[in-house]
Each structure stands twice: as structure tokens, then as C-alpha cells.
Amino acid sequence: MILTNIESVPGMRIKAQCGLVSGSTVRAKNAVLDFGAGLKNIVGGELKSYTELLTEARNDALNRMIEQAKKLKANAIINIRFATSAITSGAAEVYAYGTAVEVERIEG
């Protein structure tokens, strides 16, 4: 699966459009992480455990989107956008959406 966030796939030609695909995930921080992050909150700095959580969430959202695209028999997703929103304190939603397309390599 080729993923891009521009309107085409460089070096390839778009053969058919399959439609909009999307994937979302909501992740909450757990109590153990929360304790460490609470201390970090006072002194400041990057919250490494939350960063990992966000990476996981982003991967999940992308994978769900890719599964949808596979069902539509697409081999690439173009124009991918991420949208994020805070639902409650400490829980974040990551939403990924894009256009599933069928591409083929330009010969020559």
C-alpha cells in the first residue's frame, strides 16, 4: 500500500478511484503512565510515554484505513489527512482519512 498526502503518486498513474477511506482510534492514558506524567507535568518537558501512546494511536488509525482500502481493492491512498481532537482530559482521538485509488507504474 502506497500512502501519500499529495494529490498524486509521483512516478505512477492513477487508473481508478475507489472512494473515501478513513480510520479512527481513541486512546486514553493509563493510571501508571498518568502518575509519571503527572510528575513530569510539574517539572515540564517531553512526555515520552504519551508520545509512544500517540505513535500507537496513529499507527492504529492508519492500519484501519489501510484495511478499508484493501477491501475496495485499492493499492494506494492519496491525499491523507490527520485530524486530532481531545475528547476528555487525557484522551485523544486520531482520525486519518484519504482517497483510495488504483495506481499503475508509468512505463518508460
Binding site: L3, T4, N5, A37, K40, N41, I42, V43, G44, G45, E46, L47, Y50, T51, L53, L54, T55, R58, L62, I80, F82
Partner: peptide
């Protein structure tokens, strides 16, 4: 597609 993520907090 390449991504980079970070969570950061301010201090007290």
C-alpha cells in the same frame, strides 16, 4: 508517508 509525533507539557 512519514510522521513524527510528540507530546509536551509546560511546567508549574
Amino acid at each position: 508517508l512519514v510522521t513524527g509525533e510528540v507530546v509536551i507539557s509546560g511546567d508549574y
